[in-house]
Simulated scan of single mutants.
Amino acid sequence: MAPRRVWWFRVLFALLAFLVLFFALLPFGPGEGGVPGPDLTLCLAAAWVLRRPDYVPVWLLIPLLVLGDALLGRPLGLWALIVLLITEYLRRRVDQSEALPFWSEVGLVTGCIAVAFVANYAALVLLLAGTPPLGGEALHALATIVFYPPAAIFSQMLGVRRLAPGELDTLGSRA
């Protein structure tokens, strides 16, 4: 059983994801032709998974992402699957990325975000689904990339820090 601190951070992540979703549903969005906002749930998930993967388990992330797909009118499960694959890729790289400087981490996540948006757009095109304008999707990806460093710094301020050398997570492993 995970310690109380880990459960507290899991609840905090879920609350932050619900808060991001709440503000995304409010009617003061960009409207037609406006600049789309960032995907803050992806930013937070990437930052938390790279620092403490045990705080964001798969069983917590999947329902939050699928709920976001359902409420925001995206194809159900597509974006959730893409974000899940990206976070699992980052989760597997925790040991290699812990020695990286902050801006190298930002570069790694930037590449992942770009791949996520390209994969989402390509899947929508291949499935002959309604695709948003390519320029709007590029701006959405750019906004998400720009908001990753503040999300990582915010996560650090909340206490989501990397494991110290030799420290084990709640699962008894390095990450």
Rank of each mutant, 00 (worst) to 15 (best):
R5F: 13
L67K: 08
T144W: 01
P27N: 04
W8M: 12
W103K: 04
R74F: 15
V20K: 06
D69V: 05
R52M: 04
L127F: 06
F147R: 00
V106K: 03
V106S: 10
L76I: 05
V11R: 00
A175G: 11
I86M: 00
E32M: 07
G29R: 01
V35A: 09
L44H: 07
V20C: 14
L19T: 12
L163F: 05
G37W: 01
Y55I: 10
G33T: 02
L81A: 15
F154D: 01
P132F: 04
A2H: 02
E88M: 14
P38N: 00
A17D: 03
P38A: 11
A138K: 05
I113C: 03
P150F: 08
G68L: 10
L26W: 09
V146G: 10
L100H: 03
I62V: 15
G37A: 08
F13C: 01
W48S: 05
G107F: 08
A80V: 08
W7E: 11
V146D: 10
P149H: 04
G136M: 11
W79F: 12
L21C: 11
G111L: 14
L71F: 15
Y148N: 04
M157N: 08
L81Y: 12
A151R: 02
W8T: 13
V66M: 09
L26K: 03
R91L: 07
N120H: 08
P30V: 10
A47Y: 02
G159E: 08
G130A: 15
L16R: 04
L65Y: 06
C43E: 05
P101T: 08
L72D: 06
D39S: 07
L15V: 15
G68F: 09
Y148E: 04
A119N: 11
L168Q: 10
L108S: 05
P133G: 13
L67I: 13
L21K: 09
Q96N: 00
V83H: 05
D54W: 08
E98T: 05
P132S: 12
V146L: 15
A116S: 15
V83Y: 02
L85M: 09
F9A: 11
P133L: 07
L84Y: 06
Y89T: 14
C43R: 03
A164K: 00
L84C: 07
L171V: 02
E88Q: 15
L12Y: 06
L85E: 02
V35I: 12
A46G: 08
A99K: 12
D54N: 00
L25F: 14
G73I: 10
V56M: 08
F18K: 00
Y121A: 04
